[in-house]
Design a protein around this nucleic acid. Structure first.
Lengths: 219, 219
DNA sequence: TTTTCTAGCTGACTGGAGGTCATTAATGAG
DNA sequence: CTCATTAATGACCTCCAGTCAGCTAGAAAA
């Protein structure tokens, strides 16, 4: 455990080395996504790449370190909030949010590899790594959450009397809850009793969430 | 992995057996809390109890199974929402919530053993176990969240046009975020820049959260 | 009390995982 | 071509969850 992320690397690294690291992370992401953190085997990853297991440890220090890189790659693969079609953007903060909520489902299914790794990082790792992950999210803000909230504030759609962090936190929560619900459904369809009304219910949920959010943080 | 919780046990179990299970779970909780899931050793737990490691596996099937029992015990150790002094209760839903938010900090520090195990269950376990945990929370509702929300609805303090589940979900989120912030602070004091203003900031945060919540779900 | 039965306990054992390191190979600058 | 540095290898190590054949204690039956 202990994580500590990647080993320090002061020099800029040769390009070939960088390329190899990328290949390893790519395959690792797949294995983590398919099997979960525990069940993923470093030896399998090495075998699939046709390299020695030792190499992976040389590059990433530990399985934790490898996962952390995979997690970072996964989060970077997602589109920032403000990356939406111009017409949606023109309609403002809440329209953008709705756009992404509706999309979430597609993303979970289509782009499931980074998605699962991302979820594992949020829910499925030990507290030690979680700390590094928190740091990373604060430092990089990969989905441009802060910029998104600023956008809403500048357009006058959001209340001015709240800390930006608080608003960001609320957005996070909503999106996470939504993903969580989708994931749970996927893992355990029995939770949704009547399979017919899932779609409607989802639509209704989105509307409820957005309405709540408007009242909570909207002007 | 695979979890699957405890082995099936149709018979009611002898009292001595039940007592021993309880002792094991007790000690396990402590070890998990102190060392985290990964670092906790089943053999250490056995040694501390003066029993054979094999016995633990006989009782709980796996380390996962043991953790799940510890998690359940931890959650059951917490007080339900509605368990507050009468004068607080008389002041209604939001007063109760404030009461618990203010207490959270004490609880994290004083009652830290179940607390850490609880947090590990929420954040720090593999997705496989998370499914069991979700089921358990839905089935048992250990802190009486649903009853609490009903209380608020009956008093007319909450909007009638929202699903109970949605309100419960929002409450959960807020409490979790709060705990998370406290835990993060504990793990990494550097995140809070000026150490002096933490207390005030916390007070301010509680107020902000409650204000947001009132607008979001209050009548 | 004695015998029988069996749930529960034991602890040596295994398999397989992450991780190490001395050695070897590849790379690129001069 | 030479040499210094970086990367790759794979045999090896350690450690731990999980197993299992046999044993024990205590309750029920005789």
């Amino acid at each position: 455990m202990s994580a500590g992320a990647t080993a320090a690397r002061p020099q800029p690294l040769r390009p070939r080395t960088e390329a190899k690291r990328a290949r390893i992370v790519e395959v690792a992401m797949l294995h983590f996504a398919r099997q979960g953190y525990e069940a993923a085997r470093v030896s399998d990853i090495a075998e699939e790449l046709g390299i020695a297991k030792g190499s992976i440890f040389q590059h990433f220090g530990s399985k934790d370190g490898l996962f952390f890189e995979a997690y970072k790659k996964a989060t970077r693969a997602f589109s920032p909030y403000l990356n939406v079609p111009p017409d949606i953007r023109a309609r403002g903060f809440f329209a953008i949010l709705r756009y992404w909520l509706v999309r979430t489902e597609h993303m979970v299914r289509e782009d499931w590899i980074p998605y699962r790794v991302y979820l594992m990082g949020n829910y499925g790792t030990d507290l030690a790594l979680r700390r590094d992950i928190n740091r990373f999210l604060i430092a990089e803000d990969p989905y441009g959450r802060v910029a998104f909230v600023r956008f809403g504030l500048e357009r006058g759609e959001l209340r001015q009397d709240l800390d930006v962090e608080v608003i960001v936190s609320i957005i996070d929560w909503m999106v996470e809850r939504f993903q969580d619900a989708l994931l749970t459904e996927e893992l355990d369809p029995g939770l949704f009793r009547r399979p017919g009304d899932v779609a409607e219910k989802k639509e209704a949920r989105i509307n409820q969430f957005l309405a709540i959010l408007r009242r909570a943080i909207g002007k």
